[in-house]
């Protein structure tokens, strides 16, 4: 089975549409949206509706911390994120909010666990940035593979019992074989607000049959997305960071 792993859309419709068009060419059997559909970006309505349509076509969708913050204020959020969430609340209608609220935190597909952040405490959103974080995440589940987002930085970690966890930054366009006797923590990067120095939207295709991860980068019109953020009166930093990928 080939699964498209899409995460951290953050109300960026230009990026989401570019990624969906790219996914359409990858012969995937399933689309998994790993949360944070809204927040930061200026198109929460269109993005939520697009994801609702994907869900209607069979996609599985998970809840992220920004999706949750629409209903329940998150005390840990920084000022810019909070401003965006307050604004987002005002534009979403009841149906959108009901959809976001009802999203599950995790799901298992055979050996694979899907979740927005670390598998350690789904709902408390710990980041998976370091090999230690990956060990904690994998330590919390018996799933051989865990796929998540949340950090906006693509990464891949490999773990074997009694061995040092190996960290790797995937290279777009180069499939990484995921050896079957190892455990893997996949962090897919962000569609709508990449933070690894590249402006292009990040996602990945996980091929469970072949045991391979195919990382992708998709260029999109980030200037248009930034212009909408400014037009909506959201903090300028949320717009300017899109071009920098930070």
């Amino acid at each position: 089975m080939r699964i498209a792993l899409i995460s951290d859309i953050h109300g960026n419709l230009e990026a989401l549409q570019a990624v969906i068009a790219h996914v359409a060419r990858q012969r995937v059997d399933l689309v998994a949206v790993l949360g944070d559909i809204v927040g930061y970006g200026a198109d929460p309505v269109a993005c939520t509706e697009t994801v609702m349509t994907l869900a209607g076509q069979g996609a599985i969708v998970f809840k992220g911390n920004h999706d949750e913050a629409v209903e329940r204020a998150d005390p840990d959020m920084n000022a810019a994120a909070l401003a965006a969430i307050v604004w987002t609340r005002g534009v979403l209608d009841g149906a959108h909010r009901a959809f976001l609220t009802a999203l599950p935190l995790t799901a298992r597909i055979d050996e694979l666990l899907l979740v927005h952040a670390s598998a350690r405490h789904p709902g408390q959103w710990p980041y998976v940035m370091t090999p230690r974080d990956a060990e904690l995440s994998l330590g919390a589940t018996d799933a051989r593979l865990v796929a998540c987002g949340h950090t906006h930085v693509p990464a891949l970690f490999s773990l074997q019992p009694n061995r040092t966890c190996v960290a790797f930054t995937p290279v777009a366009g180069t499939a990484v074989p995921l050896a079957a006797h190892r455990r893997w923590q996949i962090v897919v990067g962000a569609v709508g607000q990449p933070r690894d120095g590249s402006a292009a939207a990040a996602y990945a295709v996980l091929d469970l049959g072949q045991g391979a991860l195919e990382p992708h980068r998709v260029p999109y019109d980030h200037q248009a997305a930034a212009a909408k953020i400014r037009a909506a009166g959201l903090p300028d930093r949320l717009a300017s960071r899109l071009a920098l990928g930070r």
Binding site: P131, R163, T164, V166, A167, F168, V171, T174
Partner: peptide, 11 residues
């Protein structure tokens, strides 16, 4: 391989 994880490097 420059574009694949180096399983030997960290271990």
């Amino acid at each position: 391989h420059r574009q694949l994880p180096d399983l030997l490097a960290e271990e």
